[in-house]
Amino acid sequence: MADGLTIGQAAAFVGVTIKTVRHYHRLGLVAEPERDGSGYRRYGSADLLRLIQVRTLAGAGVPLAEIGDLLDADPERFAAALDDVHRRLTEQIEGLIARRDTLHRLTGDRALLPDRACAILDRMPGLGFSPDYVAGQREALVLARALVPEGFDGFLTQLEHLLDDPGYTDLIKRGWEAETWEPDDPRIEELATAMADHYLANPALLGNSTSLRAWVSASTRYRLINNHRQDQAPISARLTALTEAKLRSAGVPIPRH
């Protein structure tokens, strides 16, 4: 019986495929054994040891191009090379974790909005706002952050004040209820007046001067954001336009449509 193992046996013992063993041979990581009298290559214990070392280092993330030098290095160089591989693997892991977290945050557009904005959106259902309203606000926030970044923080502060005001939240809910009204319903004008009066009685709800200036200087972008989804809520869009017109008449600097 011939001494040593066939390539298939050696591969099975080490836990790799025959194709992998041959790849190691091509790269010069494992020397090919001499052929026996029958013309077969036979793998001895030294060959198996080398295969195990190569497989283990490759499985640990060491690039195949570096394994040969690493196995032939002295203990100090070997330890230094492993430290370098450890550092690179750590960087790759951190990058993958960041990508995974980004994918996780995509739920609810969290990849597109900061935590502060998400916290505002998370409050809305508990205050009685419908899922459709919250979805529209989420999309508007994404647009606002991208189109008017200089006014975004001030806009978030304004929203925080608005959600803290029960009178405002009641008016907004009435505005969404108005979608069931007829377009010429006189209550639309009355509600717009009530909204404008509430803003004027509570100036903090209008936002700070820096934020207002940012919106005024970006009137075209403001119009894009303000008109978002208006086809789905035409009465609310009209209500907003009437309210803004009343505020402008009172001297509030709101961009014109």
Rank of each mutant, 00 (worst) to 15 (best):
L121S: 02
N227C: 12
Q232L: 15
R99D: 13
A250D: 11
I97Q: 12
L82R: 08
A58Q: 05
L206Q: 09
A233C: 01
D197N: 14
G37K: 08
T240E: 14
A31F: 01
P186Y: 03
R145G: 04
E179Y: 08
D164Y: 04
R174F: 00
T220K: 07
I225G: 05
W181S: 11
T243D: 03
A250P: 12
L159C: 06
S45K: 07
G128F: 06
V142A: 07
A146W: 03
Q92G: 00
R42C: 05
P149R: 09
D197V: 06
D36I: 01
L143V: 00
D36V: 02
P186S: 02
D83S: 12
G207F: 08
G207K: 12
L206H: 05
L212M: 15
A233T: 13
A237N: 09
A201C: 08
D231T: 12
V216Q: 15
H86S: 07
G167H: 03
L64E: 13
R256G: 13
D47E: 15
L242A: 08
R223D: 09
P63L: 07
N226Q: 13
D170E: 14
V142T: 12
Y24P: 10
Q92L: 09
T220M: 00
Y24E: 11
P203R: 10
P255M: 03
A194D: 14
A245C: 02
Q92S: 09
P255D: 04
D170Q: 10
Q137R: 15
A46K: 11
V62K: 05
T180H: 09
E66Y: 02
A140P: 00
T157R: 14
D153I: 07
S130D: 12
P63H: 10
D101H: 09
L89E: 11
A233L: 07
F78T: 07
G37H: 08
K246Q: 15
